[in-house]
């Protein structure tokens, strides 16, 4: 090891903090040192040196254990305000030879312990957390700590996993008035595959098809299994229109949560949705990816004084207005 490497290690090593046992050890070393000086007894000096030697070895071993660790975040695709979600990290020992021992990953909610991590080995750690508000939020972050080898000192890494994530507005079960209103429009078949009631097509059975969809009569005629495909059936293709200036913050958040819940509900029903509001427009689309775009827009929504620029309504698409307050 060069002098530069030594200096670097000295400067960049976080100062260890004594545990309760560590304070005992330091106190005993101090007391013994005092006794040694006052008695001139070299055996007391020897015992004092032993305690100090243990402290130094403890510092070196804990540093060897703490170094060469990488923490890779494992984040979920969708995070909703107020809803607990599983956050994960892969703790990896990237050292070539040295084993890391007795590591603790301290998260705000849990303390996860890894007793041994061989060189090149990784361990997936998960814990649950909740972010209460929508928008771009910084994760609380975690620290890797170790008290190895004697439990006398705690060595802590710098803050890790303090990344920014996008938190969607809270999505809740749809309120009953909204359910009634959506149901009032009535389902209407459309010429595309879906989950409606009218027949769209007959085709050969493929592995994985729902057996309830087998068309037995056609199968009997042809001698091969034939399944039904149904038409999509929707009257729910919807344009969510945000109206108002959003001056009331509480009302605004409730409205955005309502919009997000509506969008999620409609996506589950295979409806196309479009989002329009003051300063925001997400063109019409369908599916989970589109839902994430809508939720992202709602997550980042800032009240704007700009008037709602409402594009022309497409045929078969109904408007649902949500007042922002």
């Amino acid at each position: 090891m060069t002098l530069r490497a030594l200096l670097d290690a000295f400067i960049h090593t976080p100062a260890p903090r004594p545990t309760r046992d560590g304070w005992w050890c330091l106190g005993a070393a101090l007391g013994l040192g005092f006794a040694a000086m006052n008695t001139g007894n070299n055996l007391l000096y020897l015992l004092t040196a032993l305690l100090l030697g243990l402290v130094i070895v403890s510092g070196v071993l804990s540093e060897r254990s703490r170094r060469g660790l990488r923490l890779h975040p494992v984040l979920p695709q969708e995070i909703y305000a107020g809803r607990p979600f599983a956050l994960g990290a892969r703790l990896e020992n990237v050292k070539r030879r040295r084993v890391s021992r007795s590591l603790a990953v301290e998260t705000p909610g849990r303390r996860l312990y890894v007793d041994r991590l061989a060189p090149g080995q990784a361990r997936l750690l998960t814990w649950e957390t909740t972010l209460p508000r929508r928008g771009r939020r910084r994760l609380a972050g975690v620290r890797v700590t170790t008290r190895f080898p004697f439990g006398l000192f705690v060595k802590t890494s710098r803050l890790l996993l303090d990344d920014e994530v996008l938190v969607f507005p809270a999505v809740r079960p749809l309120a009953e008035p909204w359910r009634r209103r959506l149901a009032a429009g009535g389902p209407r078949p459309v010429r595309r595959r879906g989950r409606g009631h009218d027949l769209y097509n007959l085709r050969d059975y493929r592995s994985g098809d729902d057996r309830r969809m087998i068309h037995w009569r056609s199968s009997a005629k042809t001698g091969t299994l034939v399944v039904r495909e149904l038409e999509a059936e929707t009257a729910l293709d919807t344009r969510i229109v945000l109206v108002g200036d959003g001056a009331d913050a509480a009302r605004l958040e409730a409205a955005l949560s309502e919009a997000a819940s509506l969008a999620a509900h409609l996506t589950r029903a295979d409806a196309a949705i479009e989002l329009v509001g003051p300063g925001v427009h997400v063109p019409v689309g369908r599916g989970r990816a589109h839902l994430r775009r809508v939720l992202g827009a709602l997550a980042l929504y800032e009240p704007s004084a700009a008037p709602t620029a409402r594009p022309a309504q497409r045929p078969g698409v109904s408007d649902l207005e949500i007042p922002l307050g």
Binding site: N38, A49, G53
Partner: peptide, 20 residues
Amino acid sequence: TIVITALLFVIIPRVGQAAL
């Protein structure tokens, strides 16, 4: 620890008086 203890033992200054 033995090596470090030996080193520390040698260098800890003997400044006290045998009074106790």
